[in-house]
Simulated scan of single mutants.
Amino acid sequence: MYEFTSQLSYIVIFILMILEGMSLPIPSEIIMPLVGYYSFKGYINIEIGIISGTIGSLVGSLIDYFIAEKLGIPFLSKYGKIFGIDDNKLNVLGTWFDKYGIFAVFGFRFIPLFRALISFPAGLARMKIVKFILATFSGHIIWNTALALIGYEFATQWKMIINQIEKLGYIIAGIIILVIVAYIIAIFIKRRRNLR
């Protein structure tokens, strides 16, 4: 049971960090310190947690890269808000990428709010995929390791915060379940009325 729970934890970390790498509002600044915290508690292995998170970040970054490469500026101008990018941000990031290339891809991995977005100008410029992966993975592994170690070192201070987050999670889960049940009941009642 313990091994199954640990494996599930790594899968959850991986999925959440894919979403983070795709520029969706899933902050690594919360996920990776939690990896450190839960490893301190003995629930997971910190090295595997960091690798899971980093590979997830890389996959998410590659998704953004290929979205930009294959669908281009028209798609990003129309749907970029989903990823938190607009024409202004794209122009700024594009300027930085044009000037610094691989160093921009690596360096922006340490800048919150912009760290995931640098994948788009790299994809638009059709940066060599090997260089992109190298710069992206290097940035992610350093960033994720630092955050996980912070979570580990300050685990005792995190205890109160984690307890509150877990309580909030139960409340949200309860609300979601109630909404689903109410929706099913409403559909059932509506169908019964239509049969009459």
Score class of each variant (00 low, 15 high):
52 S>Y: 09
129 I>A: 06
99 K>Y: 12
43 Y>W: 15
120 F>E: 01
125 A>G: 05
27 P>H: 01
108 F>L: 12
124 L>S: 04
145 T>K: 15
28 S>G: 10
122 A>M: 03
1 M>V: 13
59 V>I: 15
21 G>M: 14
106 F>E: 10
32 M>G: 13
137 F>G: 00
189 I>L: 04
102 I>Y: 09
63 I>F: 01
178 L>S: 09
53 G>L: 08
2 Y>H: 14
70 K>A: 08
4 F>A: 14
117 L>E: 05
178 L>T: 14
102 I>L: 05
66 F>D: 10
16 L>F: 08
116 A>Q: 06
115 R>F: 10
121 P>D: 11
163 N>E: 13
193 R>T: 13
5 T>D: 14
127 M>L: 05
105 V>L: 00
179 V>W: 03
131 K>V: 00
154 F>C: 04
48 I>T: 15
161 I>C: 06
189 I>Y: 04
102 I>T: 02
152 Y>I: 15
138 S>H: 00
87 D>T: 12
35 V>M: 05
100 Y>C: 11
162 I>E: 13
17 M>K: 14
151 G>V: 04
98 D>Y: 04
39 S>F: 06
36 G>C: 03
9 S>C: 12
134 L>P: 03
79 Y>K: 06
163 N>S: 07
38 Y>M: 03
120 F>M: 03
76 L>H: 07
114 F>S: 13
127 M>H: 00
161 I>T: 05
147 L>Y: 01
75 F>Q: 03
27 P>A: 15
41 K>S: 10
194 N>C: 09
189 I>C: 00
51 I>T: 05
193 R>W: 07
24 L>H: 02
117 L>K: 09
161 I>L: 14
186 A>S: 08
30 I>Y: 04
118 I>V: 10
73 I>Y: 08
61 S>Q: 04
39 S>C: 14
176 I>K: 00
193 R>D: 01
61 S>M: 04
109 R>Q: 04
111 I>K: 04
12 V>R: 09
73 I>N: 01
102 I>C: 10
190 K>Q: 14
12 V>K: 11
120 F>A: 04
132 F>K: 06
160 M>A: 13
174 G>M: 05
147 L>E: 09
163 N>H: 06
3 E>I: 09
82 I>F: 13
22 M>R: 07
38 Y>S: 01
153 E>R: 11
144 N>E: 12
67 I>Q: 00
26 I>C: 03
53 G>V: 01
132 F>L: 08
77 S>G: 09
50 I>W: 05
158 W>P: 00
